[in-house]
Simulated scan of single mutants.
Amino acid sequence: MDNIAGRKSSLSWVVNISVFFLVVLWLLPTVGLFVSSFRTADQIASSGWWKVLFPSEQNLTLRTAGPDEQVEQDGLYVLEGQLFEPGSEAEISVWGASSRDIAAYEAGETAQLDDGETLFVGADGSYRMESPVPFEGSRGSRVFVTAETPPELTLNNYKNLLFDPNNVDGMSRAFMSTLTVTIPATVIPIVVAAFAAYALAWMDFKGRALLIACVVGLLVVPLQLALIPLLRLHLAIGIGKGYLGVWLAHTGFGLPMAIYLLRNYMVGLPRDIIENARVDGATEYQIFMRIILPLSFPALASFAIFQFLWTWNDLLVAKVFLIDATGKTTVMTAKIVELMGTRGGNWEILATAAFVSISVPLLVFFLMQKYLVRGLLAGSVK
């Protein structure tokens, strides 16, 4: 009796819990990326993002003051100060003077170093270094500590990425280059696919069924399979190193999906409207522009979302078809890789750069999400 009209199924709670679980599971990576973008490199290396609200134990490499700050007291040369930044609440548990034994001493102990030097390190990060001879060198001594640090969120990653003079110009150019690639690479396939989908849906001509089968077959062709032949073709005709080449590449790779999606939507439109327009003397172009396009806006918007997300986050096609040694046409995905360097330097800003990169696609998605489901379900119900 649970499926009587007007009564809810007794298993509806299972569906609700399952949907909630899937939504949470889907959002976890984005939440983790967002939280990590506000953490320091040491925090990211020492604990997962889910421990952001709890103290974490970290292995840190700190330095004492340089020899130019030494003072002479009772016949000894002394360096003293604080290893941590002012205001830090970190607490040292163990420390060491060598990277081979970073837990040689407890906090509060004094270590006997070479040449009669001694080093005291307190739990709060205070230190006192004494030597019978003057300290030499240009930098302070390294101290390896294991400290429990309180939870901390910082905007330094965003400041370094967006306002550092070494990064801001490159990121600005990369942002504009990505827009230059993405907008035409989204508009061009929509325009071409709309005409093709209308012809395949409502115009009778020989070979139409074969063309539809070819479009469906192209959906399963791997992108990587066509990269080298297409690049050789672009180089042969002189468009392999600029925006035109990457626009046409994205258009070619996106057209099968666009035609398939739009054709399924258009074929489900009421036939009476189109036949009445033809009886009234409307041409195929007029029917397409004044009837089909306005009614097909949900499908157009749905594909626009997919195409925009794909081209914005693309790295492979841009690397192959957008060749530029000067960096003027570098897209954001490639710029993020460059920021990390060949040895993975500055990897702590990877989460920050990735979240900055996905902010625009997220905005586009939320603005147009109401059309997404309507477009995807096109043609599924008559």
Rank of each mutant, 00 (worst) to 15 (best):
P150D: 05
T330W: 06
Q369K: 14
A258M: 02
L322V: 10
L22F: 10
L83R: 03
I273W: 00
R271D: 02
G116I: 08
T342L: 15
T329Y: 10
G6S: 07
D68T: 13
G327C: 05
W202F: 07
S88E: 12
I349T: 08
S12K: 15
T118C: 14
I349R: 11
Q286P: 07
T178R: 09
S12P: 11
Q73D: 04
T146V: 04
R343T: 14
N264T: 03
L62S: 09
L227G: 10
M176Y: 03
L155N: 02
A236W: 00
N160K: 13
V191S: 13
R100F: 13
R39A: 02
L79M: 07
I349N: 12
L119G: 15
A123T: 06
K319T: 09
R63L: 05
E91I: 15
L33K: 10
P67F: 10
Y105T: 06
W247H: 14
V24M: 06
L219F: 01
G327N: 11
K159N: 03
A282F: 08
E72V: 08
G81V: 11
G240T: 10
A193E: 01
W50F: 14
V337N: 10
G32I: 06
E152L: 09
L300F: 15
V15D: 03
F21C: 07
K51W: 14
T61A: 07
A318E: 13
D204A: 12
Y265V: 05
G96P: 11
W50D: 12
G122A: 02
A354T: 06
S10M: 03
T311A: 01
I4D: 11
D324L: 00
S357P: 10
R374D: 01
R39W: 03
P151S: 05
